[in-house]
């Protein structure tokens, strides 16, 4: 059974105003997240992953603007809302109750001068003003126990009294507080040790089963992608260049850049001289590029590549799409 579309990003473009001109951080990106689906967004640093995800929750930094596109969200009553045209006050009621987000390195996500309990209470009060503090604390304690924290201790601590991993888990509990439909996770496991990482990944999978959440998560760690994602989306230079179901992605990678990312995973059996890396670095996004932005670094480059930007085309599997003139076909 195919789940319904929950969030549909259509042709989104985001530009930053810089001294040298407009920097196109996200360029004509389209992305669909279905209900109870987990989408992984991968790519090198500076490819627009964070910009894409922050534009969903309206926290783009000063100087950034959305030049084109729509972000459609299907609300509970089947109404489809364009988040970009929504009134601020209406959007505020959707945020966190429907779409929650966990930042990259969430070390300073809690108010430094208040105890953690205040962040939990504030959050619920903003959406359900009638809920009593006792109920809120009770619910928070349940969630904190679920992420394997000592609830009483965490709620009565200041952020500086908790370790990085504890804060990250507390934030995860906070993001579950209003049972949102979609949780955006920007590198959810980067600050954690391997054992805690594994626990978090298992927990995220369980929560997805239990509550039917959808995830959009950004990561550099492809092993987490294989464990957690249903769909993998590769971004390069502000563009989405490959979208694929996760099994198909690892088995039948089409875009040379995605393939490069997979090859760059260190393997224990290799010694470090054999470690693969993609030569060069991502292009300057201020300059207009004709053709595929990856062409200068690509080992499968054709003449056509530097002249014309390829569109997204479906592979044999219709859910698998890529933008490349000379895709990898296992040769």
């Amino acid at each position: 059974m195919k789940n319904e579309k929950l969030l549909d990003i259509q042709n989104l473009s985001v530009s930053f105003k810089t001294k040298r001109g407009f920097l196109k951080a996200v360029n004509n990106a389209s992305l669909t997240i279905h209900e109870n689906e987990s989408v992984a967004l991968i790519g090198e640093s500076g490819c627009g992953k964070t910009t894409l995800s922050t534009s969903i929750v309206d926290i783009l930094p000063l100087g950034a603007m959305i030049t084109d596109g729509k972000i459609l969200y299907k609300d509970v009553d089947e109404k489809v809302l364009n988040l970009l045209e929504l009134k601020k006050s209406k959007l505020r009621t959707l945020l966190w109750s429907k779409i929650a987000m966990m930042f990259q390195a969430s070390q300073s996500s809690f108010n430094p001068v208040k105890k953690i309990r205040m962040d939990f209470i504030d959050t619920v009060k903003a959406h359900k003003p009638r809920m009593s503090e006792r109920e809120i604390i009770k619910r928070s304690e349940e969630l904190l126990k679920m992420v394997m924290l000592d609830a009483n201790l965490v709620l009565n601590s200041y952020p500086h009294e908790l370790s990085g991993g504890m804060k990250q888990r507390a934030l995860l509990a906070l993001s579950l507080l209003l049972e949102p439909k979609l949780i955006i996770l920007d590198e959810p496991t980067t600050a954690l040790d391997l054992l805690t990482q594994e626990k978090i990944v298992v927990l995220l999978n369980e929560l997805k089963q239990q509550y039917g959440f959808s995830y959009l998560f950004i990561t550099h760690d492809l092993s987490i992608v294989s464990e957690l994602a249903d769909v993998v989306v590769t971004m390069y230079a502000g563009r989405i260049i490959e979208k694929s179901p996760v099994k198909e992605f690892f088995k039948n990678t089409k875009h040379p850049y995605s393939l490069g990312l997979i090859k760059a995973i260190p393997k224990l059996s290799l010694d470090h001289t054999e470690l693969f890396s993609i030569p060069g670095s991502p292009p300057d996004l201020v300059e207009d590029t004709i053709g595929c932005p990856f062409a200068p670094r690509c080992d499968r480059r054709l003449n056509r590549c530097s002249l014309e930007m390829p569109n997204m085309i479906p592979a044999d599997n219709p859910h698998h799409e890529y933008a490349c003139w000379n895709p990898n076909n296992g040769d």
Partner: peptide
Amino acid sequence: DYVTLAKVRGIK
């Protein structure tokens, strides 16, 4: 971060 996150949390 905590101000940005407060915004995302839909706080008034």
